[in-house]
Write a protein that binds this DNA or RNA. Structure first.
Length: 298
DNA sequence: AAAGTCCGCAACCGCTATTTC
DNA sequence: AGAAATAGCGGTTGCGGACTT
């Protein structure tokens, strides 16, 4: 399906915005509101493409943008949310009022990701001589955009292209009849400050017992999930597409796919003591409770 | 003081999902 | 039904300031 470019690039300004342009855009949106980005530049008299205007507004000019350094609390929240959501920066930003996805993404790439990587490499070198394959096997290394593609395969949440999340993949655990859910298992990968020898022992990703269920999630499910009372969500939000372990849309869990169809929020085997919806909801509810507490202790 | 390097951030790019016609 | 338009997302780039040599 051919698409015309969002704007004709001829005669348009590029690069940093001037104070004048900012003012024009701000004033225009104050009067006419957001939206209609394609037509906005022409109407406002800006020599910018609509996309650029939208980005400038969302990431910089919006009145509710919080400026200033990311606090320690915010950083911790970002780390937690990133463990839960992967590189879904807009979802993470949604839990941090006043922060933009771009800001969080940049912060992650320049600060947190680097810290985690340093910690990781230090702990690896303390244990054994550095070994690429060992580093690759450790899921706590979340790679930044600038890392080579090989390194990206180490991540537990793989999204090679910008897509909206419409599916949830769950590893079905082996039957553990007596096990009941323990909140601690919700954090499948040790936090940076947690010792590696916690009770969590990652399973081999290519363990064939890790069946995957491709759950089709209805519209905006994840946002709903994050913003709603979990008790109000119904199992009907999911439609089991069946055994997708061998589904061509998915991939061998040990060789995370880099195809377009990979839109998974990956919940590891150890996050799930039970594969049914109730357990999944309670798992996420518990984690979100914790996050809520951090964001708003009252 | 000048040149080179590093790093953070804003902006851009290419893509998909959704909506509209 | 399907093409086009629009909105939104995450990855990547490049500018400019800070720092080092």
């Amino acid at each position: 399906m051919g698409r015309s470019p969002c704007c004709s690039k001829e005669g348009l300004n590029r690069g940093a915005w001037t104070a004048m342009e900012d003012r024009i855009l701000k004033d225009y949106i104050k009067i006419h509101g957001e939206g209609q980005w394609r037509n906005l530049p022409k109407r406002a008299g800006l020599k910018r493409c609509g996309k650029s205007c939208r980005l400038r507004w969302l990431n910089y000019l919006r009145p509710d943008i919080k400026r200033g350094n990311i606090t320690r609390d915010e950083e911790e929240l970002i780390i937690r949310l990133h463990k839960l959501l992967g590189n879904r920066w807009s979802l993470i930003a949604g839990r941090l009022p006043g922060r933009t996805d771009n800001e969080i993404k940049n912060y992650w790439n320049t600060n947190i990701g680097k810290k985690l990587q340093d910690k990781q490499s230090r702990s690896l070198s303390n244990r054994k001589p550095s070994n690429r394959s060992q580093q690759k096997a450790n899921p706590t290394i979340e790679t930044s955009a600038r890392l080579p593609s090989e390194a990206k395969l180490t991540s537990c949440v793989i999204r090679t292209k910008a897509t909206r999340c419409t599916k949830v993949f769950i590893n079905v655990p082996e039957p553990q009849l007596e096990d009941t859910y323990k909140p601690s298992v919700l954090r499948p990968f040790p936090l940076p400050e947690e010792p590696e020898s916690s009770e969590f022992v990652p399973k081999e990703d290519n363990d064939p017992s890790n069946l995957m269920i491709d759950l089709e999630v209805d519209e905006n499910f994840l946002s709903e999930f994050l913003n709603s009372e979990f008790s109000q969500l119904q199992p009907s939000h999911f439609q089991n597409k069946g055994d997708s372990y061998s589904n061509s849309d998915t991939c061998d869990p040990g060789q995370y796919s880099s195809t377009n169809s990979d839109q998974s929020l990956f919940l590891s085997n150890d996050m799930m003591q039970d594969a049914d919806f109730t357990s999944m909801a309670s798992l996420m509810e518990s984690e979100l409770d914790w996050l809520q507490d951090q964001a708003d202790p009252n």
